[in-house]
Amino acid sequence: MYKHILLAADGSENAVRAAKEAIKIAACHEDSMIEIVYVVDFDQSKSDVLHSSSSEARNLERRKKIARVEQLIKESNVSYKVTFLHGTPGPEIVKYANEQQAELVVIGSRGLNSLQEMVLGSVSHKVMKRVNCPALIVK
């Protein structure tokens, strides 16, 4: 049984599929909790600040990006919480998962930025290599 499941979400279709798998696992046991983690990339901060009228508006806008994932989990009656992190997505997820001693990390195989992936390799691959717990990469 996995009590603390960390689900990385970035607003992509893959993240939604990852959420469905995370729910299947979490639904097995009522003590299981899914933590939706969204990383705000450092490079995103500047344009987000410029294009939002307040930090509240900014938070709402970011919350919308994970709305579908959140909705899915809510409907399945699995307990969950939402956490926003700031930094470079891959390393930040790894750092947080290890700090929080998550028992399972669920992540989509491919995110939003395919160009970056070609050059730098995928975020999911990096996370899988460096996280201390098992990782589930969802196609």
Partner: peptide, 12 residues
């Protein structure tokens, strides 16, 4: 003040 908002956001 714009910069400070950006740093606020980056560092939460």
């Amino acid at each position: 003040l714009l910069t400070s908002q950006i740093v606020d956001d980056m560092t939460a």
